[in-house]
């Protein structure tokens, strides 16, 4: 099953990942990170397809994507 890992301490809460997630499974967390932002977080990891669109939209390299199949282009 694919998995996305968010480095929440690096997130500036811009919401670009949330906006473009095709599954709508990213939300802004209620917590406040060390930089003072509400970081993005995945609410239903089991629905993640590992498409990495969130990671591609993220300006701060917060997101890593792990998957069992081949690397995506």
């Amino acid at each position: 099953m694919p998995r996305v890992v968010f480095r929440e301490e690096r997130c500036k809460g811009c919401e670009l990942c949330k906006e473009f997630c095709p599954k709508g499974i990213i939300e802004m967390s209620g917590i406040i990170n060390i930089m003072g932002f509400h970081p993005a977080t995945v609410i239903r990891m089991e629905e993640c397809t590992g498409c990495a669109i969130c990671a591609r939209m993220c300006p701060d390299l917060v997101i890593e994507v792990e998957r069992e199949d081949k690397a995506i282009g």
Binding site: R10, K12, G13, P59, D60, L61, V65, K70
Partner: peptide
């Protein structure tokens, strides 16, 4: 599981100073 998307090697692992959402 293997990483299919991660920080490119040519970029340093450090926070950037840009504003939130700056492209």
């Amino acid at each position: 599981m293997r990483k299919v998307f991660a920080r490119p090697k040519s970029m340093k692992d450090m926070p950037m100073h840009y504003c939130p959402g700056c492209t």
